[in-house]
Nucleic acid binder design. Structure first.
Lengths: 188, 188
DNA sequence: TTCATTTTTTGATATAGGTCAAAAATAACC
DNA sequence: GGTTATTTTTGACCTATATCAAAAAATGAA
């Protein structure tokens, strides 16, 4: 999915505004397993993932890496609070495949928010979408068995579940990798 | 906390804009244990809770009511997707105490979003805040023991934890009420 | 106040999923 | 292509928390 199409699908910008907005995004290619953001540093960019997969994760108090979120094609990828509040990130962010992204800086997106009323609207709509998605995860995690959680994963990230390490998925779902392995076996 | 102060704290509206915005909110008093939104119906209003406590909850597939979120004084209260996407709500919403709220309709808030660029900004900021909060809950729930979860609850909702039924908190935290009761006992 | 209802606590037992350890299967690299 | 490193699977055992049941405490209505 192209970023322009994605934006258009959410807010009907006049074409010349969209063109201007697009000019602030920079295309980048990022190799597999590149850590794009470290814990403690401030997230400098908002990425739109055109191709590839990424995840955010953090180091929990038992010294284990826990996946917080997966990012697939056609989605924005960032550490939301760190980027928007310019605060030290609590999590890491990395690519899990060679990826093609479009990135924009905080400065530029703020400029666009100021410049275009519709850009703010776009920001609001995207944020509400994100809230809904996280809320879905929460509902899945909170009261469901390990195997229900895996079904949620398959539904929410249909084309990611088979492309990323099992351990990353297990920690995302709050179960151990051994348990996930056994679930997959039953699942055939 | 007054709603005007809350809005001011997030975005610096010119006073006359704020005044106009305020005029679209209607003060309401809602008695304890009033169901404000039913599962399946479309959430008609966004509420700002000036006084009282509320919660949203849903009926899970085992026929149990599960608290999804608590709303305390000085916060907005709504079913986000239902209100903004005008879709049937997946959850119920109720007051847990006699409450004083300021409400606004979807139609009016959309009008204000269109009218004031800064209103869109306010909407965006609020949504990001909400995402952060949900994300905090998720991190607490996902990998922590029952007792850690209760500590999260105390921290996130300091002045709510002692005002609402134990069973409502237990389901919010994804544990049984018996377990929560035992935790509270140890807690001294 | 008293009685009925709801909520919370306590006790006994069961179980889903965790932990630890090692084997098997894949993937990465010279 | 063979060797090493990484990831996944399998097995045996354990523990935190669920479940079920019933007593105690708190709340509310008349």
């Amino acid at each position: 999915m192209q970023i322009a199409d994605y934006i258009r699908s959410r807010v009907d910008f006049p074409e010349e505004e969209l063109k201007d907005i697009m000019s602030y995004f920079r295309k980048e290619t990022i190799a597999k397993n590149t850590v794009m953001l470290n814990e403690g540093s401030i997230c400098q960019k908002l990425y739109f993932l055109e191709k590839g997969v990424g995840r955010s994760y953090y180091l929990n108090k038992n010294g284990k890496y826990v996946t917080q979120w997966f990012f697939g094609e056609g989605n924005f990828m960032t550490s939301l609070e760190s980027f928007f509040q310019e605060s030290p990130s609590l999590s890491f962010m990395e690519t899990l495949e060679d990826s093609v992204v479009y990135s924009i800086t905080k400065e530029n997106i703020d400029y666009l928010f100021e410049k275009y009323h519709k850009m703010e609207k776009f920001g609001r709509i995207i944020s509400i979408d994100m809230t809904t998605k996280i809320s879905n995860k929460l509902n899945a995690i909170q009261f469901q068995t390990a195997s229900d959680r895996y079904n949620y994963m398959l539904k929410e990230f249909p084309n990611i579940s088979m492309r990323v390490p099992l351990g990353d998925i297990a920690s995302y779902l709050g179960i151990t990798q051994e348990t996930l392995s056994r679930i997959r076996k039953k699942h055939y």
